[in-house]
Design a protein around this nucleic acid. Sequence first.
DNA 1: TTGAAAGCGCTAACAG
DNA 2: CTGTTAGCGCTTTCAA
Lengths: 338, 338
Amino acid sequence: MPVDDVTVRRPTLTQVAALAGVSLKTASRALNQEPNVAPSTGRRVRDAADLLGYRLNGIARELRRGATSALVGLVSGDLTNPFYSAVASGIERELRQHGLLLITANNDEDAMLERSLVDAFLERRVRALLVIPSADDHEYLAIEGNRGVPFVFLDRPPDGLSADAVLIDNAGGARSAGEHLLGAGHRRIALVSDLVRMAPQRARIDGFVGAMRAAGNDAWEPFLRTGVHDVRQAERTVRDLLALDQPPTAVFTTNNRLTTGALRAMRELADPPALIGFDDFDLADVLGTTVVAHDMTALGREAARLAYERISGHSGPARTIVISTSIIARGSGERPPR
Amino acid sequence: MPVDDVTVRRPTLTQVAALAGVSLKTASRALNQEPNVAPSTGRRVRDAADLLGYRLNGIARELRRGATSALVGLVSGDLTNPFYSAVASGIERELRQHGLLLITANNDEDAMLERSLVDAFLERRVRALLVIPSADDHEYLAIEGNRGVPFVFLDRPPDGLSADAVLIDNAGGARSAGEHLLGAGHRRIALVSDLVRMAPQRARIDGFVGAMRAAGNDAWEPFLRTGVHDVRQAERTVRDLLALDQPPTAVFTTNNRLTTGALRAMRELADPPALIGFDDFDLADVLGTTVVAHDMTALGREAARLAYERISGHSGPARTIVISTSIIARGSGERPPR
DNA sequence: TTGAAAGCGCTAACAG
DNA sequence: CTGTTAGCGCTTTCAA
């Protein structure tokens, strides 16, 4: 029979105790494996619980124990992006080892939404909050940070407060991509990047520009494209670049979405330009795409580890972990200039 | 100053009320936008709350309101798989519109772990539970289903209890893949599939076999490979198939992981066999891979919708929604037999 | 080994 | 418009 009323009351510990003919506290002890319970009493209580279909009320327990849950929150961008989902997966695995659960929410790259999600998580009394922030200003989190809810920033450094962070060596990775292309003889190198309000994007641009400067090359400058935010835009941007009279001989894309767009733009070219993309992706090996790779799962794992240490009472100064990058040469980045 | 003690007590509503010089209930009313609060009182309370850095204790509220949270749980396989993350994303977006949050946990395809995760979620008093089950037997959930926690099964039908489900037209999709290859003139078609204990895999095999039977073709039989569970295995399996004296002229892979493996195996072939993969994927267009596509985000969205209806009190019999599939021809599935 | 009483922080019910 | 009282289901004293 389906249940009609929404408010089906579940059996409580009191009812279990009554059925077992013991006091509330004894029932509690028995079900929590606490010592000092006679075996026979324990059995009686467990039988009663089974009979009633009793299940512990975690909410009541948490309230009593100090209003703090076994939940850790993650606010990130679109989980559909494999970058975010790999990070989330790394976090979840690490947390689970400590009996913690992960709540996730997408900020849809909207600063207001992000704030309200952070609020919702804090109201749920999460033990820690992991954020891949879309907003620039994180000052509003400062009060919380000092009130016992540890924050860990992923992929983007905290701005306006001091907090633990796990970052990627964006500048270094982009620099080596630039050097890689220079080394293959390229000069006219296009840089296709996302919104510059995101710190990682700025760092990647800086790293790339640094490599160009160091080599005394300025032939890349006409081919700088920023603010390219989705696959379709990236495809069009690269198409346009390649249609120029003097097209670039190489392209560097600063994240996985942009790389996808570039690959689409180059799909039917007999003699495509060189390409390096920041972020590794699933079929890069099959496509022969050279990338700046980094361990996304490790990024999540390290962030979860930092959070767990704080939860466990660690109280040193804010720490920053930097995940290193490496170029994986698969062909596309090694094509010589035409 | 970093906080040293883990148990930093947050200010309570009582303290806010005291500071504002009003009663507990008035403070509660003011902060919850309830009617019947004088504007000046409201302001005083809000100021006091800001001053103390007060934040509502959602746990206490939930306990009082009936021990049911605004959380919906999702237990699924590896979030690293784009299939799961697309589904999760669809769920999360739909739930958010109703003010519900999503808790996720990976079962790592382990039935025991899945059970304990389900337990953990139920103890947290989730409002609904969405499951992409790895286990076969879901009978242990039956009691819960009748106790007010709605279940929705995704991608795999419930076994041993009656519950809402959102499925993919696995048999239909696989059948049309088979027909597509037959139509291109293939007879020796390899079927590479995952663990047959997963219902969707069985359905896909059945659909494919049905197409073969209907066409009176049995030349595929030597090329049936089941139990192939990861990318590496898939790659080796396809390599082995193609190394046979009489190799298959076409390959059908029954999920995205297996398709990836097949693509790796075929990477360097001058004259690869035809290929159709179940599940669309990100760069399939660039690679020219023909797939059986379906809307994974919609799968999640529909599941969340069903759950929300139950949460809102709907109590009809269990419903099943089937997400349709379609072949997207991109070249690999249209290659003729050699 | 067991039990009684108190109270976590909040909201619902009912007065004023 | 505001306050008082009670109690959600559990764990934590403290006492038996």
